[in-house]
Write a protein that binds this DNA or RNA. Structure first.
Lengths: 348, 348
DNA sequence: CAGGAATATGACAACGCTGTCATCAAAAGG
DNA sequence: CCTTTTGATGACAGCGTTGTCATATTCCTG
């Protein structure tokens, strides 16, 4: 019923060791032999048994996905991307939700690596941006990839998949400027997120490039939540000289801003333009639908996973040179403008 | 470094087989011996190696979570609940997102069971409510638990965790009736979901119990989406004799309804009450916040997982009697009313 | 208190794979 | 053409558990 390496070996007329060599891409196998084995594998629909591999080998066929994020859409997208990458390479995924503020994180990570014997870690914010966490991971000597805002990659590019918040925010701001907006309000996300700073930076740069001075009164602190968006927009719109456009740091805040504007009977986008960030399903659940920047979380995660896996595999195998610069894996992403209905020309 | 069963055996002064017996709760171990072993396990912080167990034993220590649901919050909640249950019992979780409409589901399930050797399946809607899928699963002879609307459990209660949509909807409707509403609109979710029918049923029963005839014109077909909520509410509110309250079949629709009402300058809850269903984060991202029914997805999932695990374990072990009626696992849940700000007394 | 039935425990062979090391064949060198 | 080197292949021993079956111990019963 269940086909094992023995069956393949028998069918191919070689020893099980040779089959093992072939499926692990080890050198020293003649092309003819390799072909014979591959054919047998194909015919029998052979899949190596993960448990046996984990047990026998020194390397592991499991990676872990660590997250602590209230945004379920984000997590699911990431997870699916990682899952795809794992499936494609015959790896297993260990899902590990955790609390980044808990003092146990370090012990948890240690357990994960020592006891569960994982080959690599995919870290998302806030873990990926927490120096202590990264330190712990490094000390453990396990492969890892951090998904981070480009600003946070400092000196660790080899282990990072970067999201260029600043550039995307620049583009989004340009979009508003191009539509004639001169006074653009900016609602910041939480201070603790690196992305918050990147997005603000992009906004400021775009303004500067357009020869417009950033006005402190138009930049409001906040956090990545609906309520924060509502409050921020209210403050902005009730000021003596309100902006004609609002850049909310994520879609959820933008939805809040939209809501606040509606309450004040302000027409969107007629009297006020609003843009969000991320292109979460959220941005399609508002009315009008949000103009935003599309962050391809699924793709990002897929690359992150592919990267850890390539690290793990190169280490396990022939230690052949600089596999760290694995080709074909995109390392940097810039969310692109998605123009929908919440933004338009400045009034008058 | 890594502590194995041998270390425990040595420390306890018994054979590894005896240690195995203890950790697997097998009979025929003297209490004294059992204690000795337990102590050693404790002291050494021994955890059995999953890979070895999977390889050696006939039973498996992995269960799978199958889902196909656009609602990320739902999935994450479920997943976390299952994960907790697994961790508590030393099981592993295989995450399997899938497309319920794809013709490959059956093959996928087969693969999962045959090749990945999973011990059990946790099925959520729509899988849990699709006769063909359940058939396939049954034929495969693998343990499973379906999370379903109570109406869909027919004759399979042993393998179901039921969510009592009808009762919850009844309560929600009662809430509106108690506030003096006599004309209550109802926005249905998608026909294909069993929950849609349960919720409608609860609504109708409550009306009947209050001696109010259900008016066909107040019941609108739709689907579980924001847009559908917007459309439904518009239709209802623009009719010649609009209702004073709207029961939306889930929070997303309720958010849409809220939005539509706002557009029409209708005060919530002053002129119109709106209730949702599920208590997703969504219901707190609207303004005013939604009155809804709290569906404890995390808890539900935890119970579902606990149930499959108890099935799998009883089967593997001494086959001792009716473990199917495992005690202590809640089998039925009725979402409870959560009163927030979108509902109030009927106008006048 | 012998004799047999339970009960408790251990020795040892799997499980399916990888790692190590030995062997064998082909290519290279003199 | 023989020796050396290198490449290709296989035999075999684990990895940490569980399952099977044999053995040792305890408990009854007459």
């Amino acid at each position: 019923m269940k086909v094992t390496i023995n069956d393949v070996a028998a069918k191919a007329g070689v020893s099980i060791k040779t089959v093992s060599r072939v499926i692990n891409n080890e050198p020293s196998v003649r092309p003819v032999t390799r072909k014979k084995v591959m054919d047998a594998v194909e015919e029998l629909h052979y899949h190596p048994n993960l448990a046996a591999r984990n047990l026998a080998g020194t390397r592991s066929y499991t990676i872990a996905f660590i997250y602590d994020n209230p945004n379920a859409y984000y997590v699911i997208d990431m997870q699916n991307g990682i899952l795809e990458a794992c499936k494609a390479r015959g790896y297993e995924l260990l899902i590990h939700p955790s609390n980044s503020k808990s003092p146990d994180v370090h012990k948890e990570l240690e357990d994960l690596v020592e006891h569960s014997k994982v080959a690599g870690l995919v870290l998302t914010p806030p873990f990926s941006e927490t120096a202590e966490v990264i330190d712990t991971v490094r000390k453990l000597g396990v492969d890892y990839v951090r998904i981070v805002s480009a600003e946070a990659a400092d000196k660790d590019e080899d282990n990072c998949i970067q999201v260029n918040d600043s550039s995307a925010a620049y583009e989004l701001t340009r979009h508003l400027l191009d539509h004639g907006h001169k006074r653009i309000g900016f609602l910041c996300g939480g201070e603790e997120h690196v992305s918050t700073h990147g997005r603000l930076d992009g906004y400021k740069r775009a303004l500067r490039a357009a020869g417009i001075a950033a006005e402190e009164g138009l930049i409001l602190k906040g956090e990545y939540s609906f309520d924060s968006g509502v409050q921020g927009a209210k403050t902005l719109l009730q000021s003596t000289n309100p902006p004609t456009a609002i850049f909310a740091s994520n879609d959820e805040m933008a939805a809040g801003a939209l809501f606040a504007a509606r309450l004040m009977n302000i027409d969107i986008p007629g009297q006020l333009s609003i843009v969000g960030f991320e292109d979460s399903p959220f941005s399609r659940q508002t009315w009008p639908k949000l103009t935003t920047a599309h962050q391809p979380n699924n793709e990002i995660a897929k690359c992150a996973a592919a990267l850890v896996l390539s690290k793990a595999r190169s280490k396990g195998a022939s230690e052949s040179g600089s596999a760290s610069k694995e080709a074909g894996i995109q390392r940097s992403f810039t969310p692109a403008l998605v123009q929908r209905d919440s933004s338009g020309p400045a009034p008058e």
